[in-house]
Amino acid sequence: MNTNFKSWPILLALGLTSVPLVTMYAYMIIDTVTVSPPGSFIPNGISFGSWSFLWEAPAPGRPSIWSVTLNTFIFACVSTLMALSVSLTGGYALSRLHLPFRGFFLGGLIVLHAFPTITLIIAIFLILQMVGLYDTLAGVILVKAALEIPFGVWIMKGFYDTVPWEIEMAGLTDGATRFTVWRKLVLPQVQPGITALGIFAFLSGWSEFILPQVLAPGADAQVLGVYLQSLISDDTSMDFAKFKSVGVFYAIPVILIYILFNKHLMNIYGGGTKG
């Protein structure tokens, strides 16, 4: 962008620091479709053997990859939909509606937004056991959605805040009820927010590991993260090709979403929740 400065020293520095990541990405793919002689990383043949988990019957005691994938999909989608709908109404209430204790709710929202939810997992584990939702997909979905809410409400409130008041005022004088104004006039204006939050929540649900691992460890409710991790920790042969094939399979939706929506993603991750 700047012609006054040379860019090759920068390219060199960036390139060198990026070597580890690029190597890992490259071999992530290469190892799943090739075989290499022991002690070498130069492939000497093509093989799709490590992908056999897709069509072979699962090992005894292990759920099938397809049921796990379905679980993951349900987990990610339902928790996203829940978090999204709750954030859409909650964010609107905080941005635009009259509420008793409004200031209190807003303050609470910011506190929760920054609050490290993972510290609550012990109590959540015990609460789920007490209400009987332990080891069910429904329970862990509920928890996941709930933990996304402070962030979601915060983001959506930000989007609602940018909708001109006059649009709502015009809607009211045009004869629409407050609810119709929200549904027909305001929601279409926050569409980018809905997309961004939806993508974020889906990715976060799709990638989730600790919550399902702790709150729904049974085979019936297993998700891909837990599946892959148990594959790695139970396997003594360290068959990286197999792990990576499962991993690539696991990452497909993430990569697709990144390709389709990367502008949205950069924005919402700039708001920052993880690490």
């Binding site: 990026s18 990541l21 690029v22 990405y25 990715l203 799709w206 990638s207 590991f209 891909l224 993260g225 892959l228 991790q229 790695i232 991993g247 696991y250 990452a251 993430v254 979403i257 990144y258 990367n262 993603l265 950069m266 991750y269 993880k274 690490g275």
Partner: peptide, 14 residues
């Protein structure tokens, strides 16, 4: 930016 952004959205296990 893509190279350095990917670790953030890839599943932690992976």
């Amino acid at each position: 930016r893509t190279i350095w952004f990917l670790p953030r959205i890839l599943p932690p296990v992976l």
